[in-house]
Computed example of a mutant assay.
Amino acid sequence: MPKRYWWIIITYVIAQLSSFIGLPIMFLLGFGQSDAIAIWSILSFTIATIVILRLLKPDMTQPELRGERSSKGKIVLWSILGVFLALFAQGIAATIETQVFGIPAGSENTMDLMNIARESPLFILLPVVFAPITEEIIFRKVIFGQMHKRFNFLLAVLVSSLVFGAFHMDFKHMLVYFSMGVVFAFLYVKTKSIITPIVAHMAMNSFVVISQLFYSEEDIRRMQEQLQTIVTGGLF
């Protein structure tokens, strides 16, 4: 793996862990909890994204995966289709979690993030912009891409999707994150462009954020249960 990829991973990890230092500083400056989390998250991930994209500059003119990159039109098409594929995969995964493992619908981690976003709208930039860019570069381009060059698709997608889920620290819903990882890896391989899963990831997160902001937690859980009923009926 190129040395710059290791620096990309290190940059991402530093951004994730920087809150242990940054948040106390923000509190000392007089910011409330939500504003402190929002401001520091955006600041740290803005810097991390700039550094990561700078490190990726040598890759801009090189093929990303074996084969020819799709045309711009196909990238746009698969980016749009990818949103629906990701939502459908999430629905199936959530249904399995609920029906097979008895895990309640809805992610507490997502709810907590949306509570911060309601109090400090600046925080919305994290899941809508910065997280999709950095996560797709880390988990799809670097981890999946490098494994895909050495091993087969199944092993590469298994490892990268498990790591993707683990980094979200929401282990009850690991299957949901894993399903997303599989879809985004498929989009990457299908178009040979990291732009495709980034755009699909952005659009999917935007949909989730908007729905979370305009509906109550009870409404969201009810919609998730209805969606799971539809999916269950279709599968069984």
Results as ranks from 00 to 15, higher is better:
residue 59 D to N: 15
residue 32 G to C: 00
residue 143 I to G: 00
residue 93 A to M: 04
residue 205 N to Q: 08
residue 5 Y to D: 02
residue 191 T to A: 03
residue 116 I to G: 07
residue 232 T to N: 06
residue 60 M to Y: 15
residue 35 D to P: 00
residue 116 I to C: 07
residue 90 Q to V: 06
residue 171 F to K: 01
residue 82 G to D: 00
residue 37 I to G: 02
residue 165 G to Y: 06
residue 141 K to E: 06
residue 113 L to N: 10
residue 145 G to C: 12
residue 210 I to K: 12
residue 164 F to I: 02
residue 171 F to S: 04
residue 64 E to W: 13
residue 8 I to M: 14
residue 209 V to M: 09
residue 176 V to N: 08
residue 151 F to V: 08
residue 22 G to H: 13
residue 42 I to N: 15
residue 153 F to A: 03
residue 29 L to A: 04
residue 84 F to K: 01
residue 65 L to W: 08
residue 96 I to W: 06
residue 96 I to D: 05
residue 99 Q to N: 12
residue 25 I to C: 03
residue 92 I to F: 07
residue 50 I to R: 03
residue 123 F to M: 13
residue 111 M to F: 14
residue 138 I to P: 00
residue 69 R to A: 07
residue 12 Y to T: 04
residue 129 V to W: 13
residue 191 T to E: 00
residue 175 L to G: 07
residue 41 S to W: 10
residue 94 A to K: 12
residue 45 F to D: 12
residue 230 I to F: 12
residue 98 T to V: 09
residue 153 F to Y: 10
residue 131 A to N: 12
residue 6 W to Y: 15
residue 116 I to R: 06
residue 66 R to C: 03
residue 72 K to A: 13
residue 147 M to C: 14
residue 223 M to L: 05
residue 61 T to E: 14
residue 46 T to C: 11
residue 165 G to D: 11
residue 18 S to T: 11
residue 188 Y to M: 13
residue 76 V to W: 11
residue 166 A to D: 01
residue 175 L to H: 05
residue 230 I to G: 07
residue 160 S to L: 05
residue 179 S to F: 05
residue 233 G to W: 11
residue 94 A to H: 13
residue 62 Q to N: 14
residue 9 I to L: 15
residue 8 I to E: 09
residue 87 L to V: 02
residue 174 M to Y: 02
residue 143 I to T: 01
residue 212 Q to V: 14
residue 111 M to N: 15
residue 134 T to P: 04
residue 167 F to Q: 03
residue 160 S to E: 10
residue 95 T to R: 09
residue 165 G to N: 07
residue 198 I to R: 01
residue 118 R to K: 15
residue 167 F to M: 11
residue 175 L to T: 05
residue 152 N to H: 13
residue 159 V to E: 07
residue 146 Q to N: 12
residue 9 I to K: 07
residue 96 I to S: 12
residue 19 S to H: 14
residue 108 E to C: 08
